[in-house]
Amino acid sequence: MSSAKSMEEGKKRVTEDSDERKVKNAKACITLIGEKIGKKLDVEFSLTDVKNQYREVKLPPNWKGFKTIIFNEREEGAHDTEKIAAFDFDGCLANTSVKRTGADAWSLMYSSIPEKLQELHKEGYKLVIFTNESNIERWKNKRQQAIDSKLGRLDHFIKVVGVPIQVFIACGLGKNKEQIDDPFRKPKTGMWTILAEHLNSDIAIDMNQSFYVGDAAGRAGDHGDSDIKFAQAIGLKFYVPEEFFRS
Rank of each mutant, 00 (worst) to 15 (best):
M1W: 08
M1F: 13
S2R: 07
S3H: 08
M7C: 09
M7V: 12
E8V: 09
E9D: 14
E9Y: 15
K12D: 11
K12P: 13
R13Q: 15
E16V: 14
D19T: 10
R21H: 09
K22Y: 09
K22D: 12
K24M: 02
K24E: 07
N25E: 11
K27L: 04
I30A: 14
I30L: 15
K36S: 02
K39L: 04
K39W: 06
D42R: 12
D42E: 10
F45S: 06
L47T: 14
T48Q: 14
V50Y: 13
K51E: 15
K51T: 14
L59T: 09
L59F: 09
L59E: 07
P60T: 02
P61G: 07
P61L: 04
W63F: 03
T68D: 00
T68N: 07
R74C: 08
R74Q: 07
E75I: 03
E76Y: 04
H79P: 12
T81C: 07
T81W: 09
T81N: 11
T81F: 09
E82D: 11
I84C: 10
A86Y: 03
F87N: 02
D88H: 12
D88S: 06
D90I: 04
D90Q: 02
G91K: 10
G91C: 05
S97Q: 03
V98S: 10
V98T: 07
K99S: 05
T101K: 08
G102P: 14
A105H: 11
M109V: 14
M109P: 15
S111I: 07
S111W: 02
S111N: 07
S112W: 01
I113R: 04
E115L: 15
E119F: 03
K122F: 05
K122I: 14
E123T: 06
E123P: 09
G124R: 13
L127S: 05
I129D: 02
F130K: 08
S134W: 06
I136Y: 02
R138Y: 10
R138H: 06
W139E: 02
W139A: 03
W139F: 10
K140S: 05
K140M: 12
N141R: 06
N141L: 13
K142W: 05
R143C: 02
Q144H: 04
A146S: 10
S149A: 04
K150C: 13
L154T: 00
L154C: 01
D155Q: 01
H156C: 08
I158G: 01
V160N: 00
G162A: 07
V163F: 05
V163W: 03
Q166R: 09
A170S: 08
G174E: 01
G174K: 03
K175I: 09
N176V: 06
N176Q: 02
N176I: 06
K177H: 12
E178V: 12
Q179T: 05
Q179R: 15
D181C: 14
P183T: 01
K188L: 13
G190F: 11
L195W: 07
A196K: 14
E197D: 15
E197T: 11
L199N: 00
N200V: 08
S201F: 12
A204P: 15
I205G: 00
I205Q: 03
N208M: 05
S210D: 04
D215K: 05
R219P: 13
R219S: 11
D222A: 10
G224P: 08
K229H: 11
F230V: 04
G235K: 11
L236P: 14
Y239D: 01
V240F: 03
V240A: 06
P241G: 10
E243N: 08
